[in-house]
């Protein structure tokens, strides 16, 4: 019989980490301010995109076009609802599917090249998507963009969830979306896939000679990231009730990248989550100051600080691990499992 025991070195950090998550979940109980909730809802969108970036980076590829998949998801859902007259829920689902299929097709061609070449190609892919959105007037309304409707109310007996009345339903929808994404990514990370992804970045040649087919796993990572980034994009479009070619371009791709790196790509879930929430919330409040472009300075400053003081793929999340290592007086090499392990 297995004797179950509680490893406090794992459990205590988890309990402490659960507190802010619990607070996040219950915020609407204390405040239904549209302003505050919107900021958290929007940072959720970037959390998902940043997780996708981190997953691709896990396989050793540096994608500079993740915002394009948000745009694809957003436009897919917007076109389906506005042009084809679909209702929100099926078109939201299709947004992820379409984004995933495009990631699969693009990925199986583009992932053959490595390193900087992949970055350049994904960067151009992002620009291609933007230019297409701008010029396919008939489908995308060009620069004016599309105005996707808010989700239809969900009626459960006498109880009705109305997305037009307040942002609280959006809030919980977002939390659910982030939770599902985290769960999938967490599960991928601790399954054999996680180790395989890691091995490709850690030593591609050695991994290949151990029987791991490079392309297969890169495409899996790229596609899974594409699917969830597509969902995030569709949510973004429907929440803001607009999608234009200018909303999701190169600067947004760079933001996604910076959020991941600042949070720390050593963990697939917790790092991007911390990075995206922190940077997005800070940048929203900072951009209210009467200084032009200060949020860009925040992103630039944060990434420089992290690269200098926390190199080699570590980020803010590793400070957390380091802190608990100090608390339990563990040697440096002993890895305390992070929240997502």
């Amino acid at each position: 019989m297995m004797i179950k025991y509680i490893d406090w070195k794992v459990t205590i950090p988890r309990i402490v980490a659960a507190v802010p998550i619990a607070i996040l979940v219950f915020i609407p109980v204390f405040s239904t301010s549209r302003d505050t909730l919107s900021i958290i809802i929007l940072s959720g969108v970037w959390v998902i995109a940043a997780m996708g970036f981190a997953m691709i980076l896990r396989t050793g590829q540096f994608s500079m076009g993740q915002a394009a998949f948000m745009a694809i998801g957003g436009y897919a859902s917007a076109i389906l609802t506005v042009k084809m007259g679909w209702s929100f829920w099926p078109s939201f689902f299709m947004a992820g599917v379409i984004s995933g299929i495009i990631a699969l097709i693009i990925g199986s061609v583009v992932l053959r090249v490595g390193n900087i070449y992949f970055s350049i190609i994904t960067l151009s892919f992002g620009e291609i998507v933007r230019i297409l959105a701008q010029n396919l007037e008939g489908i995308t309304h060009g620069a004016r963009g599309l105005i996707p409707p808010s989700p239809e109310p969900i009626v459960l007996g006498s109880f009705e969830i109305n997305f037009d009345a307040s942002v609280v339903p959006y809030y919980y929808f977002m939390i659910l979306l982030v939770a599902i994404t985290s769960l999938v990514f967490w599960q991928i990370n601790r399954s054999r896939l996680g180790g395989t992804f890691f091995s490709l970045a850690a030593n591609q040649i050695l991994a290949e000679h151990q029987g791991i087919y490079l392309m297969k796993y890169r495409v899996i990572a790229f596609t899974v990231a594409g699917i969830f980034t597509g969902f995030a994009g569709a949510f973004y479009a429907h929440f803001l009730e607009i999608i234009t070619p200018y909303m999701l371009g190169l600067w947004e791709s760079i933001q996604i990248m910076i959020m991941s790196i600042v949070g720390g790509v050593s963990s697939l879930v917790a790092g991007p989550l911390v990075g995206a929430v922190l940077l997005k919330v800070l940048s929203v409040y900072l951009s209210r100051l009467p200084v032009y472009g200060i949020h860009a300075l925040l992103f630039g400053g944060a990434v420089v600080l992290v690269l200098v003081f926390l190199p080699k793929g570590t980020g803010l999340i590793d400070l957390w691990k380091k802190f608990w290592r100090k608390v339990f007086n563990e040697p440096e090499w002993y890895e305390i499992p992070s929240i997502d392990e």
Binding site: G195, T196, F198, S199, A202, N203, I205, L206
Partner: peptide, 14 residues
């Protein structure tokens, strides 16, 4: 040639 950043067990498990 090693898997960078991996422990001995992780390297062999992968």
């Amino acid at each position: 040639i090693l898997f960078e950043g991996a422990t001995v067990l992780e390297s062999v498990m992968v």
